[in-house]
């Protein structure tokens, strides 16, 4: 009787220890990680960048907003869709293509002006000032926000890229031809 009571006591102690261990493990598993909180900050940054960027006035282009110029750029392309990246801006290919209906200055139409300005603003703010990596995309025939995660039909792409964990922000941008998908990924520099 005494021995069996001792055994029960021992078992109880083991169960209590196991319960504590489980509680400890569960509290670590359930706890939101630091990454989740950093993600919130980067998500806020991505949404603010996107909304601010498209409302910015193009002072040297008849005071249209960059969003309006992007819309005009797509409408000026018609059925043939061009594809550019930041290399095409630096080597002047985008100027030579001369796409878009609005002429901002001689030889510089809406596509050239808007995409050059977007590239410059993103580079000076995200890369140089805030020190994060990013990936900016304008897609044609994008089927909702999911399209910007696996992009095809890219009209414009810029940024050092985001191979690691990223915060994704996307905005549909209607034009008279189709609805463009504008996407921005933001991630920490590794």
């Amino acid at each position: 009787m005494k021995k069996s009571q001792m055994e029960i006591m021992g078992l109880t102690i083991i169960v209590v220890i196991l319960a504590f261990v489980m509680l400890f493990v569960v509290s670590f598993v359930m706890k939101p990680s630091e990454d989740t909180k950093t993600d919130k900050i980067q998500a806020k940054l991505a949404s603010s960048v996107m909304s601010t960027l498209l409302k910015t006035t193009a002072v040297d282009c008849k005071k249209f907003t960059l969003g309006e110029l992007v819309k005009d750029c797509r409408e000026g392309m018609g059925s043939y869709i061009s594809s550019w990246d930041e290399k095409d801006i630096s080597d002047g290919t985008i100027d030579r293509d001369n796409k878009g209906n609005i002429e901002c200055s001689p030889g510089k139409n809406s596509c050239s002006y808007a995409l050059r300005e977007i590239n410059s603003i993103l580079n000076s703010t995200l890369s140089e000032r805030i020190n994060v990596n990013y990936n900016f995309l304008i897609l044609s025939q994008g089927n909702g926000c999911e399209a910007t995660k696996n992009p095809t039909n890219v009209i414009f792409h810029t940024g050092p890229g985001c191979p690691a964990t990223k915060q994704h922000e996307c905005q549909p941008w209607p034009t008279s031809i189709e609805t463009l998908q504008i996407g921005l990924d933001i991630c920490s520099k590794i």
Partner: peptide, 20 residues
Amino acid sequence: VVFLPVILHDPVENSDYYGL
């Protein structure tokens, strides 16, 4: 340090600039 992109509105010129 935390950054937030904002619009800088010039009511005289009626223009919106990109600010941080």
